[in-house]
Design a protein around this nucleic acid. Structure first.
Length: 287
DNA sequence: GACCAGGTGCCAG
DNA sequence: CTGGCACATGGT
């Protein structure tokens, strides 16, 4: 197993992987994380502030050291300048607390379908449940990968051909119909994920919302975590609570759309980043 | 056993 | 446009 050390100045691996944007990475006894970047098994360990050991478990996929570094850099968005992002935020006591506590958290670039599918299974589920469903789907329908304990996430062509009951047996409940419906639209070519990338954020959001099981919240998660739209703000119960109690009047009623608009106007073009810090900070200090 | 979880879709007023 | 409710499952 070849490994290499890379330098990354501002990166908190644990915060990034535990912040509820991705659902399949596991810690190991030696402190490293193992997971898959699409079909490639990856092992990564933070050695100190800025040094990371990355390696390819098993011996199947032959990536050159350069290719491995590129893959990891893209996935973890190591090109994002956190200094610039932090500097763009307003002076704000609430956000600054979260920034200090979660410094180094990065918005990652997930495979599009994997991200879309897992967030279709997310409504009314806790993060650990989403992890469970994701793992069940991988085990039931995903292709095994040499060097990885867990199989790859099943593609939409596979899922489009399974029965709704098979998806329910993975614990999806009422989400099974939505995942199946969406998988079929993609498999039939009636929905094109590549088109999402070519659209401006708002039209892309509207387009995503045509999929069954995808509303504004899920669409924003997909735009933020898979399409690098750093101004997309998913408003869930956590963010809604934080915005209402710390930034807005908790008397008045706020529509999620209005809270999105407030976030953009207050936090700016990286409002999605601000949202993720607030979300993670609130969750690690769970009530 | 209620109660709630990174919501969505549908229907009545 | 707004409010209310069903939707499955699993953990406190």
């Amino acid at each position: 197993m070849k490994s290499r050390i890379i330098e990354i100045p501002d990166f908190d691996l644990t915060a990034t992987l535990e912040s509820g944007q991705v659902f399949h990475w596991n810690t190991r006894s030696d402190g490293s994380w193992s997971g898959l970047i699409d079909r490639t098994p990856i092992r990564i360990r933070q050695q100190n502030d800025a040094q990371f050991e990355i390696s390819l478990p098993g011996n199947s996929p032959s990536l050159s050291p350069g290719e491995l570094t590129s893959l990891v850099s893209y996935y973890f968005s190591l090109d994002h300048s956190l200094d610039d992002i932090y500097a763009s935020f307003p002076v704000d006591r609430v956000l600054n607390d979260a920034l200090q506590r979660c410094r180094g958290l990065r918005i990652i670039r997930q495979p599009r379908w994997e991200c879309l599918a897992t967030f279709i299974t997310s409504p009314m589920k806790r993060v650990d449940h989403i992890r469970q469903m994701s793992l069940s789907l991988r085990r039931c329908f995903g292709a095994s990968v040499e060097g990885s304990e867990i199989p790859a996430y099943p593609g939409f062509r596979i899922l489009s051909q399974v029965g709704e009951e098979d998806l329910r047996s993975c614990g999806l409940g009422f989400r099974a119909r939505n995942l199946l419906g969406t998988a079929r639209l993609l498999a039939d070519g009636r929905f094109d994920l590549n088109k999402v990338a070519s659209l401006e954020t708002e039209p892309a959001r509207q387009y995503l919302c045509t999929l069954p099981g995808v509303g504004r919240k899920v669409a924003n998660c997909v735009l933020l975590f898979a399409f690098g739209r750093l101004d997309a703000v998913p408003v869930d119960v956590w963010i809604g609570r934080i915005l209402k109690t710390r930034y807005l009047s908790r008397r008045r009623k706020w529509a999620p759309e209005d809270m999105e608009a407030f976030s953009i106007s207050h936090f700016g073009k990286f409002a999605g980043y601000a949202q993720q810090y607030l979300f993670h900070y609130a969750r690690v200090h769970e009530s």
